[in-house]
Design a protein around this nucleic acid. Sequence first.
DNA 1: AGGAGAAGTGGTATCGGTTCCACTTCCCGA
DNA 2: TCGGGAAGTGGAACCGATACCACTTCTCCT
Lengths: 345, 345
Amino acid sequence: MSAPGERSARVTMKDVARSAGVSLSTTSRALSGSGYVAETVRIRVRRAADELGYVVDVTARGLKQRSSLVIGVMVSDLRSSFYAEMASGAGRRARQAGYTMMLVEDGGNRLGELDAVNALVGLRVAGVVLTPASDAAADFLRRRRVPVVEVDRVFGDGDAVLNDDRAAARAATEHLLELGHRRIAFVMDETEWSTARERHAGYVEALEAAGLVPEPSLVVTASSEAVTDDVRRLLASSADPTAVLAVNSSIAERIWRAAAELGVGLPDRLSLIAFDDARWMRIVEPGVTAVAQDAARLGAEAVSMLIERISDPGREPVRVIVPAAIVIRGSTAPPRAAGIPARTV
Amino acid sequence: MSAPGERSARVTMKDVARSAGVSLSTTSRALSGSGYVAETVRIRVRRAADELGYVVDVTARGLKQRSSLVIGVMVSDLRSSFYAEMASGAGRRARQAGYTMMLVEDGGNRLGELDAVNALVGLRVAGVVLTPASDAAADFLRRRRVPVVEVDRVFGDGDAVLNDDRAAARAATEHLLELGHRRIAFVMDETEWSTARERHAGYVEALEAAGLVPEPSLVVTASSEAVTDDVRRLLASSADPTAVLAVNSSIAERIWRAAAELGVGLPDRLSLIAFDDARWMRIVEPGVTAVAQDAARLGAEAVSMLIERISDPGREPVRVIVPAAIVIRGSTAPPRAAGIPARTV
DNA sequence: AGGAGAAGTGGTATCGGTTCCACTTCCCGA
DNA sequence: TCGGGAAGTGGAACCGATACCACTTCTCCT
């Protein structure tokens, strides 16, 4: 344990080599396990490394090998459980594959994105998984030949791992239709992202398949500031929905609150179904019916795809679509007057 | 060595130097901004770097300088909002200070901890912020002279950023005492951690200051498997608490559920106060009174402390205690039969 | 006028590994 | 007996940046 006093702060391969009485080359081979090394020597070197507490300097190794076993993961906001779970899934899969995850947050804006991505390039990561806020980051990376996989939403046409947003939205809408709802609202906040676009498309598909005509007054694009007001207005308006589909959990929360404030009972007067199965939806009464996206799986798949891309930079872009499940809880039920020849519209 | 027509995948300083028509040394000085460089040359070099899309290789720089601007952050589980917010706060502060955050998850166990910490050491991070699950990780790091700051809980006596767990628990208990409660239960799940210990101590302090004798039957150490059963047993037992203090949000959730199942009305028959102000506590009805820990601030403070420690490795260990606030919501109220004859129900 | 020192530039060793290459043994088959 | 190749080892050139040092030119003070 207590070796002769003045041991330098950092144990390098040179120390290990000296201690084991062999050259640097042999030490490197013994530790990395590639190339000829006598079994006895290998054991001796390994033991010396253990005793000295040697840890390989991956930055030095990466410098020489021109690639590191680090992959970058960039998310908009860790405080959102979706991103946190995604990152968690990505990290686990990365570790399984022998990589380390480097996680950075951009503020969900172009500038933060470029900052973060710059840091990753500087670290010479082997590749990057990102939830894009714009096309800037992926472009920047691709221009520098850094493999990229986009998750959850996509700009351009590179590799991506996406939810089956359209099918899930369609299924969610069909669930409401089957319960007898005809006036189904759709509330969203971001139209620039592919997620919102796809979900809206699924909603429209389901309505049309049921022979209904989508009504513009039932589709609300809430400005992120005034979502609550917009929701309140919708519920009080003549559009008079009996059910509402929320494009994400944050919107769902606003609707939940607005309903409580306005005394609109769930599910009696309004059915609610949400994208993103947030924790609170399981706890409140009634529970909120939700489209459960497997965020951790999304992250894991993305890492796997990235690793494949790293080993084969030339292949065609790949898209993986991860199916989502609908978890039915108490917030969806037949409309009050369904079945009975209701007021005609 | 350099073939004219061949563009290498990566732009290095050499390319910038050639393009600007100056030496490597001058290029380095022009880009890093230290040392003498003529203004005109500096501009020329900077422009060349921009045009070529040069990004400094921080691994090479770190190798030479023996320190990197990367700090490691290790948390148990990103899916928990406390850790996620902590990491988010740490990342922001790190970025402000010019560092990049490297985030790793350990599985909350000794082995995962050591794995993760090993990866960080290999990356030659400048220091590590961690929420320890045991003393293993911090020991490992300190033995290798890597600066460490522990967050939220602490083993041993190094630098740490902690909640004011004791004072917060005391205040929470006092809040219940002021409402008139006398039979106050305390439910926890982990006794090994300093958090649980401190919170329990604060609870006892408050009781004793009020002249009450802490009753062992009111303190439940729930095994993590059977928390729900334990809680159910407590509520049904002769211990008959009128209020309960939950050591964390996960325990609080179990209590919430158990109360709902058993038909124990909140706050009429039982008051609930929880550590950790989870999102759902704001959404459910009644809202859950909670001790709000500022996790993001905890992370930010830890990073600041770490940076100070990096620049002064010799100074005495420091502890920062971050105060917590109590957010009063609907789940706490006077006990039914307390003091003033309540409204007849 | 002479010299100190500031301003500016380039050469080169170095950080901690990996890897190519040269070199020595030793074994085995022809 | 000899040649060839496998087994094993060490030397040294990198990877991309930094920083020390040597060197030149120019300014300014005594």
